[in-house]
């Protein structure tokens, strides 16, 4: 009794490493693998970064027509701060600081929490990007 002939392969063919030369879709597989790996690496990094946390201290910072209240905040080096920026004006403001590397829009009447942490001693200026005459500073000692 003759053995049955091998059936022709139907449907999508999986691309093995050995079959690369016959396999035109390898490039997108490689790209997918690379994306997967970089996503995984980044994910690990982010989990690691999220784990490194310290106690936080809240500091209220109000923005009125005349500027920031208080105009200067003091903090200890390395402290984790939660800046509670309240917009007391009638229009949106943007809390911004090149020194702190932060930028947040605050709608009128709202409070937004901006986190900063691990700062070394120094003077870190901030301003309202939409009304640049309003300025203040965080002094870290």
């Amino acid at each position: 009794m003759p053995r049955p002939l091998p059936q022709p392969i139907r449907g999508p063919v999986r691309c093995s490493r050995a079959a690369r030369l016959r396999c035109p879709r390898m490039s997108s597989r490689a790209a997918r693998a690379a994306r997967g790996m970089s996503a995984l690496a980044l994910g690990l990094l982010l989990v690691l970064a999220a784990a490194v946390r310290a106690e936080e201290r809240s500091v209220a910072l109000a923005v009125a027509e005349h500027g920031f209240t208080p105009p200067e905040i003091e903090a200890a080096a390395g402290e984790r701060l939660r800046l509670e920026v309240t917009n007391q004006t009638a229009v949106a403001i943007e809390f911004e600081s090149f020194e702190l590397n932060r930028e947040r829009v605050v709608p009128p009447g709202r409070t937004v929490a901006v986190y900063v942490s691990g700062l070394s001693p120094g003077r870190y200026e901030f301003f309202d990007d939409f009304h640049q005459e309003r300025r203040g500073a965080l002094v870290v000692k």
């Binding site: 982010l46 999220a50 490194v52 590397n101 930028e103 947040r104 942490s117 691990g118 070394s120």
Partner: peptide, 21 residues
Amino acid sequence: VNKLIGLGYLSPIEPQVWNTA
């Protein structure tokens, strides 16, 4: 990533690696 740090979801690890201002 910067937005997530500012929101307090991620730690900057080190807030300022260098300053090229």
